[in-house]
Structures are given as structure tokens and as C-alpha cells.
């Protein structure tokens, strides 16, 4: 399988405080990887480096065979931030409008959505089981339903890699299981690569294909 993300000797520090030193890992096409670790070990920092938002203090990272600094094909990377659920909490928009947002760069500046874009939005919502709620305001949906809409927003632009930062934060225990099942089936059926930061390895371990553990500044692959 080809590598889609490759990190070598990656180091990062905030000022004098080292977060991790010379870590390396590869993510292969079709992987479903969980990145775990205690609070403050740098999981979200690592995701921000992958997304080109932070510059590593050492080493290199490549996405889809390009150095992250030169990478420009960001629509191929779907990202669900840790605060994804909260940011939409009181936003006055329907599920359909929120999912459509991720197609705006495809639609282009000074242009407006057409039928094919609306169909794509409905397909994405259907994929996560939320098509029936497309006209509902996001604030009227439950935590689990909102997170499904957020996933549909990521999926609608047909990304090659999905990066999810704590996707189960703020979601009740019963819904967490169905979200993991959904992610696992998307990974199996569409072949999409998923990198997911989580605290909840107890429940996630049954669904992911690999686990990377980030602790005390170093990263190891767990085989349990």
C-alpha cells in the first residue's frame, strides 16, 4: 500500500518546552489509525503539523508524496476539528447548508451551488444516515446527529484522507459506538484513510486497524 502520510525525525517544541522529539511514523492508504496519548502529549499539535498550521522544529512530514510546506491540495484532506461540534452549536444554519460549505471551493468564487452540488450534499448526508434531517437547523439536532453532519461535511468533498480530532467529544456513550461503526464502515467500503485522535481507546480499539501511542515525547505503534 502506498504511504499517504510520512513523518521522519519530527520534533516540536513550544518555546523551550519540548512536546515530542524525533518521532517517525507512516500512514498507508486505507489505514484507520488511532493516535492516542494522555492530555498534553501533543496529539492535537501533531494534527496541526500534518495540516500545515504549525511548523515542526525539526524533521519533515510528507502528505500524498509532497512536503507539507509545499502541499496545496488541501481539499483532498478532510478535517474535523476537536471544536467542530461546539462551533456549530448555535450557528443558524441547516445541516444541508453546513455540508454544502465544503463544496464552496469546488463551486468557485462568484458562483452559486447547482443541482449536482445539492445532490452531492444529500449523498453525503445519506452516507451518515442524516439525509432526513437535511432541512433541520444544526442547533435542533442531538450531539451525535451534529457530529454525523460534521462527518458528512468532511466526506462531501471526497477527501483521500480524513483527520478527526477527538470526534466523540461531547457525544453520549450510546452514540459513540454507532459513530465508530460508521467510521469503520466508511473506511472499509470507500477505502478512505482515517487518522483519528482519541482518548477513548477502550471503545475505539475494536474498529481501528492501527494504534499509535504518543507518550512522553515519543511515538510508538501498539500491537494490542
Amino acid at each position: 500500500m502506498p504511504k499517504v502520510i510520512e513523518a521522519e525525525n519530527l520534533s516540536f517544541s513550544y518555546g523551550n518546552e519540548s512536546i515530542f522529539t524525533k518521532i517517525g511514523f507512516s500512514v498507508y492508504k486505507g489505514d484507520f489509525v488511532a493516535v492516542i496519548g494522555s492530555n498534553g502529549t501533543g496529539k492535537s499539535t501533531l494534527m496541526r503539523i500534518i495540516l500545515g498550521e504549525l511548523t515542526p522544529t525539526g524533521g519533515s512530514i510528507r502528505i500524498l508524496n509532497q512536503d507539507v510546506e509545499k502541499f496545496g491540495d488541501w481539499p483532498k484532506i478532510g478535517y474535523l476539528p476537536q471544536s467542530g461540534l461546539q462551533s456549530a452549536d448555535s450557528f443558524p444554519a441547516t445541516a444541508e447548508e453546513i455540508v454544502m460549505a465544503n463544496l464552496f471551493s469546488q463551486i468557485g468564487l462568484l458562483r452559486f451551488p447547482k443541482k449536482k452540488h445539492r445532490d452531492k450534499v444529500h449523498q453525503a448526508l445519506e452516507l451518515v444516515g442524516m439525509d432526513a434531517y437535511s432541512k433541520r437547523m444544526i442547533s435542533e439536532l442531538s450531539g451525535g446527529q451534529r457530529q454525523r453532519v460534521m462527518l458528512a461535511r468532511v466526506l462531501v468533498s471526497d477527501p483521500e484522507i480524513m483527520i478527526l480530532d477527538e470526534p466523540t467529544t461531547g457525544v453520549d456513550a450510546g452514540t459513540v459506538k454507532s459513530l465508530y461503526e460508521l467510521l469503520s464502515s466508511l473506511n472499509r467500503e470507500t477505502g478512505i484513510t482515517i487518522v483519528m485522535v482519541t482518548h477513548d481507546i477502550g471503545r475505539a480499539s475494536g474498529y481501528v486497524s492501527r494504534i499509535l501511542s504518543l507518550e512522553e515525547g515519543s511515538l510508538e505503534e501498539r500491537n494490542d
Binding site: 498550521e53 488541501w74 447548508e97 465544503n102 464552496f104 471551493s105 468533498s157
Partner: peptide, 15 residues
């Protein structure tokens, strides 16, 4: 609309 909703996601989506 997208920037008001989620500035970071908007940047990644190519806005």
C-alpha cells in the same frame, strides 16, 4: 458563511 462557521476548515477546503 463558511469562514464564520469554521475558519480553519474553510482554509483547508480551499477558501
Amino acid at each position: 458563511f463558511y469562514i464564520a462557521l469554521d475558519e480553519r476548515a474553510a482554509r483547508l477546503a480551499g477558501i
